[in-house]
Amino acid sequence: MLMDRSHYYCSTMNILGVNVHYEVYEKEKGKPTLVLIHGFLSSSFCYRKIIPLLEKDYTIITIDLPPFGKTEKSTKFVHSYTNMAKVVIQLIEALQIKKAFLVGHSMGGQVSLNAAKQRPDLFQKVILLCSSGYMKGVHPSLKFGSYVPYFYLCIKHWLASQGILKNLYNVVHDRTLIDQEMMDGYMAPFLDDKIFRALNRMIRDHEGDLPPEELKQIEQPSLLIWGNEDKVVPVPIGHRLKKDLPNSTFFSFQNTGHLVPEERPEHVTEKIVTFLSQAQ
């Protein structure tokens, strides 16, 4: 899908000591701001199909979270959800945006919830696309392994053994959607060996998802969108989040997997626009 690049720019910003890549789509000044946050082992590429559908109504900002996409693969950055949320917050503040909406896919959903919890004054509503939920911190043995020299090579070997096609099969229900452009786009960040060292650091820093008692403190309206065939974050997680988030709405698509922005771009866009246009 071709994008109109006449109102687009990309840049990097140093936040918390790491060079963060972001992209801005702004067809018209004064439109509400929509911040798109990708998931684990992904990048802003995952939103390529919904950006052209949303940019006529919103200013869109996509952020590649450390160490993914085109953002620096740092081994010094603390890759916790709390810090990733701070990256989002500080970038939005630096762009002098006073109010914004958040969209988070998978791990990006947890980052979005963290950001919304930290700054309820900045983020008015949250859309969660197959958001991770209730995952505990990394097992102590794996965390210990991250301190072993060259453990990052084990991570590289494991990801290589899975292969891009197998990974996409796991996240997409309709496999006919997988083409060369899709495989190349999701594979690109992993051509830089530095990402495996950064992922090793991420294992060490991962603190787990927000517990129910903290989710219940997030009062912003939230929309939860799921794929009924999600193998990565099954639908029951979405129903549980719906119960714990006090001002939330849940919707799921049939015959759809984990990568809902790729599989149902038009339908996801419709749900987002309707939700954001509602007075709360």
Score class of each variant (00 low, 15 high):
Leu276Gln: 05
Ala279Phe: 12
Cys10Gln: 12
Lys31Ala: 15
Lys86Asp: 13
Cys154Val: 13
Lys27His: 13
Ile272Gly: 03
Thr62Gly: 12
Met135Gly: 08
Gly133Ser: 15
Gly185Val: 04
Lys29Glu: 15
Thr176Gly: 10
Ile237Cys: 02
Thr62Glu: 09
Ala279Gly: 14
Phe45Trp: 08
Ser44Arg: 02
Ile155Lys: 02
Val78Thr: 14
Tyr25Thr: 07
Asp244Ser: 11
Ile51Trp: 02
Pro66Gln: 09
Tyr150Arg: 09
Leu168Asn: 09
Pro211Phe: 06
Gly208Phe: 03
Tyr150Asn: 14
Thr59Ser: 12
Tyr134Asn: 04
Leu34Ile: 12
Val103Thr: 04
Thr62Pro: 00
Phe101Pro: 00
Lys143Ile: 06
Glu229Gln: 07
Phe151Ile: 06
Lys70Thr: 01
Lys29Thr: 05
Val232Pro: 02
Lys98Phe: 12
Asp192Phe: 11
Asn255Ile: 02
Gly69Lys: 05
Val233Tyr: 02
Glu266Val: 10
Phe275Thr: 10
Ser161Thr: 05
Asp121Gln: 06
Lys29Ala: 15
Asp205Phe: 10
Phe151Gly: 00
Thr269Cys: 13
Gln162Arg: 14
Gly185Asp: 09
Ile164Asp: 06
Asp209Ala: 09
Ile203Asn: 00
Met84Cys: 12
Thr249Gly: 00
Asp174Ser: 09
Ser6Thr: 14
Ile15Leu: 15
Leu223Tyr: 05
Gln180Thr: 15
Val103Leu: 09
Leu16Trp: 06
Thr82Arg: 00
Trp158Val: 15
Glu26Asp: 13
Gln254Glu: 05
Phe253Glu: 04
Pro52Ala: 13
Phe251Gly: 02
Val260His: 01
Ile272Pro: 03
Thr82Asp: 11
Leu142Pro: 01
Lys194Val: 05
Glu181Lys: 09
Val233Glu: 03
Lys49Tyr: 06
Thr274Val: 10
Ala198Asp: 09
Asn247Cys: 14
Ser161Gly: 07
Val18Glu: 03
His21Glu: 08
Ile15Pro: 06
Leu191Lys: 13
Val111Met: 07
Arg201Pro: 05
